[in-house]
Design a protein around this nucleic acid. Structure first.
Lengths: 253, 253
DNA sequence: TAGTGGTCTAGACCACTGA
DNA sequence: CAGTGGTCTAGACCACTAG
């Protein structure tokens, strides 16, 4: 990585810096290698540390870098392909799907959830918390809302404790015939609990996948899963091995 | 919106500020309303402008605010639901799908694209550029790569000019029998051309949707579409036709 | 031209990690 | 403990929009 001076074009410095660093990463660094610290890098490029950080933030957003406080900045491996749309016709918790139930509570749903579930205002819902691991790393945290009316046979005695109760609720849910599901993906920022689960700081960018499970002509369950945006590529369909990061720039004339 | 002092907990100021502003937006502001300018807001909360901006960036990332240079900061409408996975078995350009062809070039594909297409190294590909509009706003810019071997009948004479040629290529593509497609979603940042197309600054967060169209046992076309992450919620599944009609005509006359 | 958000600087201190 | 990234400040100037 050179000590190149930045040209004075009408392009922001941090953006130009991002480009320079991107090229350096591809040609001179290997995955897992640690970069010089921010103060050194800033000095090397002749910019303020804040400007250098703006460029690093871009690269982290794009999944090319990984920064850890107290440790340093490392070159990130390519994003993991995480299947989201394959089990088109399976309830959550079916088979081996990398999800791990954490606990389960029974309470009144937040307003936004109640609306999506089209339940009675005051109907209690089971809230199952799950975590998804891939390659030994946490990639997603999920809240799964299941109205009591979707699992009427479940009694409080079945399993009063956290994870066991969560599994009991999921097992009970599978008695319903699943008619289909539909999901949506949007950008969000990790709240405190999700951030902790995902081993990130609050505010970290996440991909929020909202899925409605349909049965008996209504929404039988609602899943809100937050995936780490820096390390995950969500795949819909059969395979997810396409490796395109950014479209190249080429214009016609 | 009060003049509340920030408490000194171990929570970052900008994060607390984000929370306070979120609540204020929900209770005291309406969609389209403009906020006080950044310098005033910073003074009101007793923080530096940079800190205030960090909070605003979070809110913009979450789609709650919209900031425009030279104009101001406004309260954003709820994100638009944009159907991405509905036409599971349709070629791009089929029917009325809100996409508009812009132009088309024929050149050798970038390395990453060539690999995904599994073409010969040097085989030229048609590169179709399209734009997607929703509610009068640009929501996505796409580069569609089509190897020459997927549209063998196409002659250079058909339509030598930009948009017309793009449509000719898409029309030709529909002669193949589509066996399926698979897509992936990941976070990225808008490059210069995409940013211009999307009416955003370079580096703006985007959702990159990569789709492979399969025909005759191979990848017949590859689409790389970048959606505005601030205004779009990508929907997969049948009822992706949920039209959120929060009429944008909220301004006083 | 006045006012907005966008960029940039040169510091300072804090929270966290690992030796 | 020394070194890292994370937060924060108080300025300055620039690019853009609209009246």
């Amino acid at each position: 990585m050179g000590t190149t001076q930045l040209e004075s074009v009408s392009e922001p410095k941090y953006w130009h810096l991002r480009t320079v660093l991107t090229e350096a990463l591809e040609s001179e660094f290997t995955v897992g290698e640690i970069l010089p610290n921010e103060r050194d890098l800033a000095a090397r490029f002749g910019v303020a540390r804040a400007t250098l950080r703006q460029a690093l933030e871009q690269l982290e957003l794009e999944g090319r870098l990984q920064r850890r406080r107290g440790v340093g900045t490392t070159v990130a491996p390519p994003r993991m392909g995480v299947a989201v749309g394959t089990e088109q016709h399976a309830w959550p918790g079916t088979g081996e799907d990398a999800w791990q139930a954490v606990d389960c509570t029974l309470a009144e749903a937040p307003a936004a959830v109640a609306e999506a579930l089209e339940t009675e205002r005051a109907e209690p819902v089971h809230t199952v918390r799950r975590t998804r691991m891939t390659h030994g790393q946490p990639v997603a945290a999920e809240l799964l809302y299941i109205p009591q009316s979707s699992v009427p046979e479940l009694t409080a005695i079945d399993a009063p404790h956290g994870a066991a109760r969560a599994r009991a609720v999921l097992r009970e849910l599978q008695r319903l015939e699943l008619e289909g599901n539909e999901s949506a993906v949007e950008l969000g920022s990790a709240h405190a609990d999700d951030a902790k689960e995902l081993d990130r700081l609050p505010g970290a960018p996440v991909l929020v996948v909202t899925t409605r499970f349909l049965a008996a002509g209504r929404t039988a369950a609602l899943s809100v899963a937050t995936y780490r945006a820096d390390t995950c590529r969500l795949t819909f369909g059969d395979s997810g091995n396409v490796e395109i990061h950014q479209a190249p720039e080429q214009r016609a004339s």
